[in-house]
Design a protein around this nucleic acid. Structure first.
Lengths: 333, 333
DNA sequence: CTGTTAGCGCCTTCAC
DNA sequence: GTGAAGGCGCTAACAG
């Protein structure tokens, strides 16, 4: 019953085979999840022996021959990238549901990428899901010795599958909402200008403004953070205050809202309307009822896990898998 | 320069040895971090060869002989346990800084614990850091085949090191703060009654109230969540509203604050004072300036990582390592 | 269907 | 200081 009292080494498949009176190969086959040829009586004996020994396969040794570890790397800049905990909770749950485990890799800074490469953090993970934009696909492929890199940071790559929210619809819906509410002028608070994703996002806003005859008064650069929203507020709501402020992250919108509480009696806009982006779960708190742009997280996660489970579904050069975004109205608009 | 264009298999130590014109053993020794006898010219040649090949040791194969994977499991109930992202960011950073990687295990429910055991998620992790209270130390030890389990969920265990905040000081400071502000009556909002940690916490509050002559009017049970705080508010601030409300989590305090905004003009208390617990980074947002009880997170993380790096520092039966808590005043008190 | 034989990639004796 | 040989635990190829 009790099989790990002493300092005894964990049983190996050789122990199981011996106890069952079969060869190691048969034991291996009997214990395999795949259908393998074994006579049913031997299979039974093996299984019983394994149970009585409390045998657990050494997955590391296993991976050495099968070349698959059931390990998926999730690569982020900082853990704060996980601010959408809801999304990550689903993601991890789903990855575990398909029998894999998550190794969480925090890059921290661009410099660390090089460090990782030098130090050889080279687990042969089955796949790497890249949320960090500090590393491009080829680099990540080298880091993990894995061909299967799923880019979720907006950086495209011919050789790797890409899953990405299609921001067009959501942005246009949000701007249309503003236009319907007689918004004629707007300011835009952006993130890091260097990011191509952010570039595209800003362009989409511009396009939508143009289409609805909304005048873009001013663009302020932040860094997606609450603090940068806080700081941006001063530049935005002076005398020439716009009818609406659009932010490319919810956190920045939260910062602005906190500076301008007076402009939102009972959380409703008076002087200007406020739109965020991301649809963080934070926007469910009463104090931050920020109209935002979001997407179906389960669908997004499903696409990601699908490309991990079924890597052959991807052909080099294939266009990104997209998840449509939509406008999520709340009080601030 | 480019060493993985084709479908070529990653270079092994044998390739390095061949290129350097030495035996595999010498190559292994030269590449080892430990000091091993190798003539310096050969060492140099090996290192150069490894670099030019872009050689990265296969950590899995390595672990097969060294019995150490440089993998640390972080076990949580849900990802929402990570609500203190600040803490986790440091933790992961520090773990990576000592050359290990984090495998994030989400238990989800008590039923899943058994499932993990059956499926033999037997990665030989070097250590498991248990935040989940769904699993006790013996179970986790079996799950991971690891002797080194660090309990961070408040569940004690003779055989495993425990790191835990010492809540006494912080609670007494908070209650003293209230007493100094003429608080004479208080209500307490608690988490799951089943948890022994929570039991102890509640007892400490009671003790502190008694010492300062504060009358405990009412105890309401929540579940640490924002929503449960929201719900509790109705029961608390009726006619016999206390002078202060103490919550055993910041999230619950946030829920109460949102229901009772009117009682906090300019975020300052009028009818009653509000105290949280955890000192979440959320309390840095202007909208939730909740007085709380926290501890030095870097110190906490340092203790954890120390017990992972230096497991022999722990003796069975040793008392928990504690991190002192302290009161963190903000507007709501 | 079964058992034997070879490795997977690495490290560690152990002789030299 | 060096290299040959053996083995970590497991599974894929073979013959039988």
């Amino acid at each position: 019953m009790n099989h790990d009292n002493g300092r005894a080494a964990p049983p190996t498949i050789a122990d199981v085979a011996r106890l069952a009176g079969v060869s190691r190969a048969v034991a291996s086959r009997a214990l395999s999840t795949e259908p393998r040829p074994v006579s049913s009586d031997k299979r039974e004996r093996v299984i019983e022996a394994a149970a009585s020994l409390g045998y657990k396969p050494n997955l590391l040794a296993q991976s050495l021959t099968t070349k698959t570890v059931n390990l998926v790397a999730v690569v982020v800049n900082h853990i704060h990238d996980l601010s959408d905990l809801d999304l990550f909770d689903r993601l991890i749950d789903q990855i575990q549901a398909v029998g894999k485990q998550v190794i969480l890799v925090r890059i921290g800074s661009v410099a660390r990428v090089e460090e990782f490469l030098r130090n050889g953090v080279a687990y042969h993970v089955d796949a790497a899901l890249v949320f960090s934009d500090f590393a491009d696909a080829p680099t990540v492929r080298r880091m993990f010795r894995s061909e299967l890199v799923v880019m979720l940071n907006g950086l495209h790559d011919e050789l790797s599958p890409v899953v990405i929210p299609d921001e067009h619809a959501g942005i246009f819906e949000a701007v249309a909402d503003a236009a319907a509410k007689k918004v004629r002028s707007a300011s835009l608070v952006t993130g890091r200008a260097s990011s191509p994703v952010e570039q595209a996002r800003v362009d989409t806003y511009r396009e939508a403004f143009a289409e609805h005859g909304i005048k873009l008064i001013q663009t302020v650069q932040g860094d997606y953070s609450y603090e940068s929203g806080h700081a941006a507020a001063a530049m935005l709501v002076g005398p020439g205050c716009p009818d609406a402020i659009f932010c490319t992250s919810d956190a920045m919108a939260m910062g602005i809202l906190d500076v301008c509480r007076a402009d939102f009696p009972h959380n409703r806009p008076s002087r200007f309307r406020l739109y965020g982006f991301d649809n963080l779960s934070l926007t469910d708190f009463d104090a931050y009822p920020i109209s935002s742009i979001g997407y179906d997280k389960s669908l997004y996660v499903r696409h990601i896990v699908e490309s991990v489970v079924n890597p052959r579904g991807f052909m080099p050069g294939q266009p990104p898998v997209t998840v449509p975004t939509r406008f999520v109205p709340r009080l601030t608009a």
